[in-house]
Design a protein around this nucleic acid. Structure first.
Length: 555
RNA sequence: UGGGGCGUAGCCAAAGGGUAAGGCAGGAGACUUUGGAUCUCCCAUUUGGAGGUUCGAAUCCUCCCGCCCCAGCCA
């Protein structure tokens, strides 16, 4: 008997619905509004909806919730499709658009009018607000609330025909102006917007609101469980009000807490601002939490899906530690990313007891986690580069790497000892490290141990690369709490390194390929790469014991 | 001071009358030709608080406290 997988509260509710016979099947949907790029918060909803459908043998639709012509664009539709597919999900032929339902929705609205449950209101937006009352006081009924069905029908048709200006008239549901739930105080369900819609063009000048379009779109598609975020909890009575009166099927709305991650901002409004004000290079800037950005950064669909499963689903507001996301990436990349040696900040090393022009091929594993990945040959020569971080003239305690008089192993090759340092007489900068190698210490043939093994690259066999080091975009764990989140941007979120030296094979790496640069981190080939000048984005660093120690001793 | 929700470890999150899972982070150690990976161990005498019911309460009851959402013709 297997210990049963803990089910989240939504799965429990679904199983109750199935057991009670309320539903005999499960059908979910992911309904983004195409007014921005999908981000990792959407990924939570995507994974939830698709995995629940799969778990219960049901289906999940992809639906564009496009009822506002002012903010929506085809570009965002294309991006959403690309991103959901990239995440690994398949909606079959069920890509739908709320805008495809405009005709049906219009008919539903007329039906509501005929039932005496909706009316055309002439109040201005400001007046509607005043009539709505406040949190503690009931609203007042509009003087136009009791128009006849015939008049409402006629006015609504004239609205549709463009006979009125924006803001002049709206269609409202006739519910209860005294309801303690503001959403029930005669919500607007149709408004006049004389803008052309990216899909329906100028065919309509009246558009349904979310509150009206969403439940009915769900009902049209035969959705059983309509999962949405907590802020719609207050809308559920309204959702049900429309479904009960007009719905061809009866979906159930269930709300869960939206995702928040430390050092990130996950609201489309804020992300749009980052893009529009140029704080990032675009929606796919590798620092962005968008799926496009994470993809460019080097995140894999598997890592993101796993993360979404690990964070769970509940109704408690949460702020997930970004380290969990990073953990999921490392876990995935560790077992699949080919290893390569790359020197980010080159420091020249000359092995004095090796002849000029000496070349020896040493063999390195492509991935110690995956024997199938095979091995590769790397040239070992007299002049090498190592990383500046791997040498210290005056090493503090616990620094195990190279220092005057000290030995380290060059990964896959020999043990070298630092004999002397050559400095620039003017600046005092270290120019070259002179070492001697131990000919009997060749990797694989010697058991001699050193405190550390460092990576290296042959000067004459390396190629140049640009490396972009990313850190968290914000310096505050919760940028939402900043007065203005822009003020909390991390000024060091991007550091560009030029003149990095990498293995020659990396010249042919394809855009999107991810490698582990030995001892440094995981790096993804950026589309900005040019022939002979690859550009790498650091997806995430490797865990680093020394970095931790260094931070402590500097405190 | 209207309505709707939510409080279990630093962060997520199970358990829903039978004596607090798991993951991340953190700590200690083993191993290691990546200070990576892997492995082992530690990390809530207690579930926002106070009462009550019960042999037994994170779970049931009462009161209190705190946090989030709602007054768009956004979604």
């Amino acid at each position: 008997m297997q210990p049963k997988e803990p089910k989240n509260f939504i799965e429990k509710l679904i199983e109750e619905d199935l057991a009670s016979g309320r539903y005999t099947r499960v059908h979910t949907r992911f309904p983004p509004e195409p007014n921005g790029y999908l981000h990792i918060g959407h990924a939570k909803a995507i994974v939830l909806n698709f995995s629940i459908a799969e778990k219960y043998g049901g289906l999940c639709n992809l639906r564009m919730d496009d009822t506002n012509p002012l903010t929506e664009k085809q570009e965002y539709v294309d991006a959403a499709i690309r991103d959901v597919r990239w995440l690994g999900y398949d909606w079959g032929d069920r890509l739908y658009y709320a805008s495809d339902y405009f005709e049906k929705l219009y008919e539903f609205a007329k039906e509501l009018i005929k039932k005496g449950l909706a009316y055309v209101d002439d109040l201005s937006p400001e007046e509607i607000r005043q009539y709505r009352g406040t949190l503690t006081e009931p609203g007042r009924e509009s003087p136009y609330r009791n128009r006849s069905v015939e008049e409402n029908l006629e006015l609504f048709e004239r609205m549709k025909n463009g006979e009125f200006e924006e803001g002049q008239k709206v269609l409202r549901a006739k519910i209860d102006m005294a309801s303690p739930n503001l959403n029930m105080r005669d919500p607007v369900i149709y408004r006049i917007i004389k803008a052309s819609h990216y899909r329906t063009g100028d065919r309509w000048c009246i558009y349904p609101t979310y509150d009206f379009a969403h439940p009915l779109s769900d009902a049209i598609e035969g959705i059983t469980h309509s999962l949405c975020t907590l802020e719609f909890e207050d809308h559920r009575p309204l959702y049900e009000w429309f479904i009960e009166r007009l719905g061809p099927t009866k979906p159930r709305q269930i709300e869960f807490a939206r995702l928040n991650i430390t050092y990130m901002v996950l609201s489309k409004r804020k992300l749009t601002r980052l893009v529009e004000e140029g704080h990032v290079s675009g929606w796919d800037d590798p620092r962005m939490p968008t799926l496009a950005g994470l993809r460019r950064r080097g995140y894999t669909p598997e890592a993101i899906r796993n993360f979404c499963q690990m964070i769970g689903v509940s109704k408690a507001q949460s702020l997930v530690d970004i380290e969990l996301l990073e953990h999921c990436l490392r876990e995935d990349l560790n077992r699949r990313a080919p290893r390569r040696m790359a020197v980010l900040r080159p420091l020249r090393v000359v092995i004095d007891n090796l002849p000029e022009g000496y070349i020896e091929e040493v063999e390195l594993e492509n991935n110690p986690e995956d024997p199938e990945a095979g091995k590769r040959k790397v040239p070992f020569t007299r002049e090498l580069y190592i990383d500046r971080d791997d040498f210290m003239e005056e090493p503090p305690p616990k620094f195990y790497r190279l220092a005057p008089g000290r030995e380290v192993r060059l990964k896959g090759a020999y043990i070298v000892r630092c004999e002397r340092i050559e400095k620039d007489p003017q600046t005092g900068e270290i120019k070259t490290i002179h070492c001697r190698y131990d000919p009997d210490s060749r990797s694989g043939t010697s058991t001699r141990k050193t405190k550390a093994t460092i990576h290296w690259i042959s000067v004459s066999h390396s190629i140049e690369a640009e490396v972009r080091l990313y850190e968290r975009l914000f310096r505050e764990p919760n940028p939402e709490e900043c007065e203005d989140f822009i003020e909390c941007l991390n000024p060091n979120s991007l550091e560009v390194l030029r003149g990095c030296r990498v293995e020659p094979s990396l010249a042919d790496a394809g855009v999107g390929d991810v490698f582990q640069f030995l001892r440094v981190g995981y790096f993804c080939v950026d589309p900005d790469s040019k022939r002979g000048m690859p550009v790498f984005n650091r997806a995430v660093t490797l865990k680093d014991e020394w970095a931790k120690i260094r931070q402590k001793i500097r405190l």
